[in-house]
Amino acid sequence: MSAKDLPTMYGLAESDPGQKLIKRAGVVDADLQQIDRIMAEMGRMRQIERRIMRSSQQYMKLNETDMRAIRKMISAKHAGQSVTPGALSQYLGISSASVTKMIDRLEARGHVRRTKHPTDRRSQCVEVTEETHLAAGEQVGRHHAKRFEVAKSLSPEEREVVIRFLASTSDAMESSLDEAGPGETE
């Protein structure tokens, strides 16, 4: 995709024309164009990720919270860990009553099943069904495999640059959340 085809809403000129947030004095035009292109590609990737998520949600007839719960259960299954309703409540940031309703709904639709906790007789676990695990792999897993192929194609040095950029960007964005006042983060 050429630079002129990228989304412009993330460009410096469009998002901060008065340079109130991002001071550009002393940055040469070629650097600004390259930085703009990085921002546009990041925006394009977020748009594609949202399309993938919506497509997966529609295919599996799940909402965003359901999908996050399913991903958590699949990850735990791969790691050989059990998932309790309490752990889901904490992970999803929702009440235990909401988790119970969600599990009831997912169980009724054949996405999850309740099992006995392996070590605590008073507790139960929730695990994803094999059918849903396969469907999630087909829907979401194939997209993640594409990311792996791109990362694999880079040299170790290039991967280190990408890792440093993504980690630093995440750190900077996270610190901006900590600096924001009430109501400014959502």
Rank of each mutant, 00 (worst) to 15 (best):
Lys116Trp: 02
Ile74Asp: 14
Ile103Arg: 04
Gln124Lys: 13
Glu49Met: 09
Met45Gly: 03
Lys116Ile: 02
Asp104Thr: 09
Thr132Ala: 12
Asp36Ala: 02
Ala136Ser: 09
Ser89Lys: 08
Ser123Pro: 01
Asp104Gly: 01
Met42Gln: 05
Arg121Asp: 14
Tyr91Thr: 11
Arg71Ile: 14
Ile94Glu: 01
Asp66Trp: 04
Thr115Cys: 08
Ile48Asn: 06
His133Asp: 13
Thr115Pro: 02
Gln34Glu: 12
Glu127His: 03
His78Pro: 02
Ala97Lys: 12
Arg109Lys: 12
Ser98Gly: 06
Thr119His: 11
Met42Trp: 00
Ser96Asn: 13
Met73Pro: 12
Arg105Pro: 04
Thr115Gly: 12
Ile52Lys: 05
Ile52Met: 09
Met39Asn: 03
Glu49Lys: 03
Cys125Met: 07
Leu92Phe: 07
Glu131Val: 09
Ser98Val: 02
Ser82Thr: 15
Val99Leu: 05
Met102Asp: 04
Thr132Cys: 07
Gln34Ile: 06
Ala76Phe: 11
Asp66His: 15
Leu92Ile: 07
Leu62Arg: 11
Ile38Asp: 07
Ser75Asn: 08
Ala135Tyr: 02
Ser75Lys: 12
Glu130Ile: 02
Arg113Cys: 05
Met102Ala: 04
Asp31Tyr: 11
His117Ala: 10
Gln58Trp: 06
Ile70Glu: 09
Thr84Cys: 10
Arg37Gln: 13
Met45Ile: 00
Arg51Phe: 09
Tyr59His: 07
Leu106Trp: 04
Gln124Phe: 10
Gly110Arg: 03
Arg50Ile: 08
Met102Leu: 14
Lys72Ala: 13
Glu49Gln: 08
Ser75Cys: 07
Lys101Met: 05
Arg122His: 12
Gly43Arg: 00
Asp31Met: 10
Gln47Arg: 09
Arg113Gln: 13
Thr84Met: 10
Gly80Ser: 10
Met102Ser: 07
Gly93Val: 08
Gly137Leu: 04
Ser95Lys: 06
Ile94Asn: 04
Tyr59Asp: 14
Ile35Ser: 00
Leu106Met: 14
Gly137Arg: 06
Ser89Leu: 08
Gln57Val: 02
Arg37Asp: 01
Asp66Ile: 06
Asp104Pro: 01
Leu32Gln: 13
Arg105Asp: 07
Arg121Phe: 05
Gly43Thr: 00
Gly80Ala: 08
Asp66Thr: 08
Ser55Ala: 14
Arg50Tyr: 09
Pro118Met: 02
Gln33His: 07
Ala79Glu: 15
Ile35Asn: 06
Arg54Leu: 11
Met67Ala: 13
Arg121Ile: 10
Thr132Phe: 03
Gly93Met: 08
Tyr91Arg: 05
Gly110Asp: 05
His133Arg: 11
Arg121Met: 06
Met60His: 02
